[in-house]
Design a binder for these strands. Structure first.
Length: 359
DNA sequence: ATAAATGATTTTCT
DNA sequence: AGAAAATCATTTAT
C-alpha cells in the first residue's frame, strides 16, 4: 500500500531494465517486472543456494567480538537469508491457498452444473478472477520483501553509517592544500591522487573532502578565518622562499612592482590574473608559463593571510581578522583563474544577489 | 543530552 | 563528468 518504489528511487533505476526474463508475462506489468528483477538480483528469489543459510548462520553465531567488516557482512547475509526464507514460505503458502481455492470453486461449480448448465467460458472467467486476486497478493508480498531488503541494504551498506573521521595529519595535509590554493581549490586528478596517497585515503574521499570544504568555507567564511590564518602561517616560510625566488627570477627587467593597495581585502582574482599575464609576457620564454603562474598564484594566496596576520601584530588584543571573501566572486562561486573569461559568450551577468546566509 | 563538526550520499545544475 | 547544494548519519565537543 505504501510506496516503497517511490521511497527508493535508486533501486528502481538500477533494477528497471536489467534482466530479460526468459518468459514474458502476458500483461507486462513494469512494476512487477522491477520487483522480480530486484528480488532476483538480490538473491532472494533466485536458486536456493544450498549451504548459504547454514554458512551465514554459523559465521554470524561464531564470534561476537570486533566490529570488523567480515562480521557485519556475514550478519548482513544472515538477515538476507532470513528474508528469503520468509519470502519463500509465504509464496508457497499463497500458491497452495490459491490452488485450494480454485479447486473448491471448481467443485462448487460442478455441483451447480447439475441443476444449471455452466459454460466453460464461465469457469475460465472464475479461474481468471481467482488468479488475478492471488497474483496481486503475491505482488504485495514481493513489494514488502523488496522493502525489507532495501532497508537491510541501507542499514549495512550505507557508508554514512560507519563513517570515521580522518586522521589528524590527513586533515592537516588537506587543509594545507586547500588554503594554499584558496583562489582555485580544485585539485586536478593527479593532485587528488597525490593527496590521497599522502593521507592514505581514496581519491573519491579527497573529492568529497574538497566538495564539503568548498561549500562550507563559502557558506561561512568567518568560521574558517582562524583556520585559514593558521594554515597560511604554517606554509608561510616555504611560500615566502618560493615567491622570493620567483620574483628574483622574473625581475630581470624590474617591473617596478606597483603593488597596488590590496591590503584590506580588496584582493581580487582579476588582479592575480593580470599579474599572471604580465609575468608571462615579460618572461620572454613562454615555456611553463602556466605553471609559474599557478605557483605564484598559490603563493599569493598564502602570503595574503600572512600579511593579514603579521599586519595585525598585536596578537593578544585585537585579533580582528577582517579580510573579505577575496576569492569569491559576486555570484558566490570561485572565480576560475585558469580561463581568462574570453569574450565569446558573455551570457551571464551579475543577476540576483540574494546570498544572505544568516543562520 | 544537545549542538557542532564531519564524512558520505543524493539531487540538481552546468 | 564534475561541481554545488541539500541532506543524512555519525563522531566529537560542550
Amino acid at each position: 500500500m505504501n510506496g516503497c518504489i517511490i521511497a527508493h528511487r535508486n533501486f528502481t533505476v538500477i533494477y528497471g531494465l536489467s534482466i530479460r526474463g526468459a518468459q514474458e508475462e502476458d500483461p507486462p506489468d513494469p512494476q512487477l517486472m522491477r520487483l522480480d528483477n530486484m528480488l532476483l538480483a538480490e538473491g532472494v528469489s533466485g536458486p536456493e543456494k544450498g549451504g548459504g543459510s547454514a554458512a551465514a548462520a554459523a559465521a554470524a553465531a561464531a564470534s561476537g567480538g570486533s566490529s570488523d567488516n567480515s562480521i557485519e557482512h556475514s550478519d548482513y547475509r544472515a538477515k538476507l537469508t532470513q528474508i528469503r526464507q520468509i519470502y519463500h514460505t509465504e509464496l508457497e503458502k499463497y500458491e497452495q491457498a490459491c490452488n485450494e481455492f480454485t479447486t473448491h470453486v471448481m467443485n462448487l461449480l460442478r455441483e451447480q452444473s447439475r441443476t444449471r448448465p455452466i459454460s466453460p467460458k464461465e469457469i475460465e472467467r472464475m479461474v481468471g478472477i481467482i488468479h488475478r486476486k492471488f497474483s496481486s497478493i503475491q505482488m504485495q508480498l514481493k513489494q514488502s520483501t523488496c522493502e525489507a531488503v532495501m532497508i537491510l541494504r541501507s542499514r549495512f551498506l550505507d557508508a554514512r553509517r560507519k563513517r570515521r573521521n580522518f586522521s589528524k595529519q590527513a586533515t592537516e595535509i588537506l587543509n594545507e592544500y586547500f588554503y594554499s590554493h584558496l583562489s582555485n581549490p580544485y585539485p586536478s586528478e593527479e593532485a587528488k591522487e597525490e593527496l590521497a596517497k599522502k593521507c592514505s585515503i581514496t581519491v573519491s574521499q579527497v573529492s568529497n573532502w574538497f566538495g564539503n570544504k568548498r561549500i562550507r568555507y563559502k557558506k561561512n567564511i568567518g568560521k574558517f578565518q582562524e583556520e585559514a590564518n593558521l594554515y597560511a602561517a604554517k606554509t608561510a616560510v616555504t611560500a615566502a622562499h618560493a615567491v622570493a625566488a620567483a620574483v628574483q627570477n622574473n625581475q630581470t627587467n624590474s617591473p617596478t612592482t606597483p603593488n597596488s593597495d590590496c591590503s584590506s581585502g580588496s584582493f581580487n582574482l582579476p588582479n592575480s590574473g593580470d599579474m599572471f599575464m604580465n609575468m608571462q609576457s615579460l618572461n620572454g620564454d613562454s615555456y611553463q608559463g602556466s605553471q609559474v603562474g599557478a605557483n605564484v598564484q598559490s603563493q599569493v594566496d598564502t602570503l595574503r593571510h600572512v600579511i593579514n596576520q603579521t599586519g595585525g601584530y598585536s596578537d593578544g588584543l585585537g585579533a580582528n581578522s577582517l579580510y573579505s571573501p577575496h576569492n569569491l566572486n559576486a555570484n558566490g562561486g570561485w572565480q576560475d583563474a585558469t580561463t581568462p573569461s574570453s569574450v565569446t559568450s558573455p551570457t551571464e551577468g551579475p543577476g540576483s544577489v540574494h546570498s544572505d546566509t544568516s543562520n
